[in-house]
Amino acid sequence: MNKLKTNATVFIQPLLAVIVGLLVGTIAIMLSGESVIVTYQEMWDGAFGNLYFLTNTLERAIPIILAGLGVAFAFRAGFFNLGAEGQLVMGAVTTAIVTVYLPFQGLLNMVISIIAGMLIAGLYSFLAGWMEQRFQINLLISTLLLNYIAVLFAGYLVSEPFRDTSSAGGVPQTVMVDEASRLPKLLTGMNLHYGFVIAIILAIVIAFIMKRTTFGYEVRMLGQNVFFAQYGGINRKKIMFTSLLISGMLAGLAGSVEVLGIHYRFIEGALSNPQFAWTGLMAALLANSNPIGTTVVAIFLAALDTGSLGVERNTDVPNSISGIIQAVLILFISAKFTMNFLNQRKKEGK
């Protein structure tokens, strides 16, 4: 009974946020003078209307899910990893370079280049943890600032040493990935690739780790009360480093599968401009870092993006409608955080 109740509240909060978000969206649509029903109909069609749009939405959700899972994992252990964007870009650029320079192509190339990308991204996040341990540099700040370094460094790599010079001018990008080393599509003719399967499997695996393993228990307890964890003999340092490593690897994987599954190269800005990592962060926070919940919310947020493109195609409502709804969701998240914080204060001072 109690369990049921807590499970229900887990879903009620994000649901409520979404409903209010859509209501505010309604006002915005009315202001632009379009029919609300038609607009939301277009949004739905744009996101799920036919197989093409549906698979497009799911494809867009892949990096959001993976980055979101990464954020959620660290958050569960009590560490706020704001560096998903940097880790995602590091993973992507590493994969894009490794796959091209490996002397062979095919499945093995794909696996190695993905693992390389995850590893570099994981170490990048690990670095922030090390700085926290060694110099007491606040994780929140270091992970955030490392984003800029990563994005600009990747930009340099593809503009200078690893630039694809075969096509003159245009956006800096790496050489095309060989066809044999790409992530195959799930359905012919559609954008959706096997990265989606990987993302779903990982969401289930992480949910299992969290709930059913001793490691997951240690992570959860550390996230809930550091002192209690230490009292029980849990090694904070070990859990911090492992969870940051895993968190970074998941964000890195988000970048790697984008490179091998859809862009087939690293294009400057192609992964940071759509804000995949930040949308993932939002998904994790809305879902209270529950891995399955994060996945569901990530798909919803992706649908909001693809749906609003549909709205723009077929109505006079601009696609910033998705931005408005997302802004309301962000407000909800911060309201939730403030409430939790205030409740905490209240309880401590009771």
Binding site: Y217, R220, M221, Q224, N225, F228, A229, Y231
Partner: peptide, 17 residues
């Protein structure tokens, strides 16, 4: 402070150590 994780359920609290 040391003895429990307030938000965790009794199972999690009981299993520490």
């Amino acid at each position: 402070l040391w003895g429990a994780a307030k938000e965790a359920n009794l199972v999690d609290n009981m299993m520490m150590t």
